[in-house]
Design a protein around this nucleic acid. Structure first.
Lengths: 146, 146
DNA sequence: GTTAATGCAAATTGTTTGCACTTTC
DNA sequence: GAAAGTGCAAACAATTTGCATTAAC
């Protein structure tokens, strides 16, 4: 699912921004990795190109997020992870014990979304959501341990 | 709702840990502040006591969390915020535009919890959850802007 | 040729660690 | 008085910023 550079260029130009090889490489890296921290994106870019600077990665991820081409979420207490918005919208569940991350169809959360809108006038953004907990494999293994 | 020092002391002793003035002050600060980052806790402690070291705040919040007396969640992309578990269990919704944080009864998310358990065998921990989105005041003000 | 974008190095922010000293039990 | 806890300073990780240089348009 490599990125279509024309699309990126068009989106950038709409906002008076410029298409650079770094921006193409960084978007491509995010798409290849699925979910990745800025550091991982940097490492991935370096497998293709000689080098890109870390600050360029941060600046570019910010730009790509403003353009709506990537999103970020927090899958750990450490660095955020970015993913392409070409993937269908989803939220994440993360197992605290084994660390496994699964993407979940937002439809599952529809009742929650409706209740929050109805009862609190609040429109949640599920794309940013990561829910921590314990997966089935881990809870059957050692139900007592938290 | 100041903390009962006897309770803290008892919990600590159960685990072979010691009751210190710093630990009392830090727990008290968290309870007074409602939701606070380590930095804010430090500042609050200093309004009572001459001084406590920042590393003691980090170490103590970790201990208090292990004892189940406080919990943390991520209400921003920056530092985590801690709150007392004396508050009834809740999760948080955060408005991206005005920054307002509201606590929500976990009952609202019961259908989501059940669906995740049924369909994915996943038991989510709502206490750690912060949902980002837009509150009613902000969405009526300027519905177009994200 | 203008202006945006990048690279680099230094500054910031949030957090952790090693170790000598202090305090609790 | 033994072991746990604290303070302090230094190390660390992730990110941001200022500014000179480079590249897109």
């Amino acid at each position: 699912m490599p990125s279509d550079p024309g699309d990126l260029g068009a989106r950038l130009r709409e906002s008076g921004l410029r298409l650079t090889p770094q921006r193409e490489l960084i978007l491509r890296a995010v798409e290849e990795l699925g979910h990745a921290t800025p550091d991982e994106v940097l490492a991935q870019v370096r497998t293709h190109a000689s080098s890109v600077n870390a600050s360029t990665v941060y600046r570019t991820l910010e730009v790509l997020e403003e353009l709506g081409l990537v999103r970020h979420t927090h899958l750990s207490d450490r660095a955020p992870t970015y993913h392409s918005t070409r993937e269908p919208e989803h939220f994440h569940v993360v197992c605290r014990r084994c660390g496994v991350v699964r993407s979940v169809d937002p439809e599952v959360a529809a009742p929650l979304v409706e209740a929050l809108e109805r009862e609190h006038g609040f429109s949640p953004d599920l794309g940013h959501l990561a829910l921590f907990g314990v997966c089935s494999a881990c809870s059957s293994e050692s139900p007592a341990t938290q």
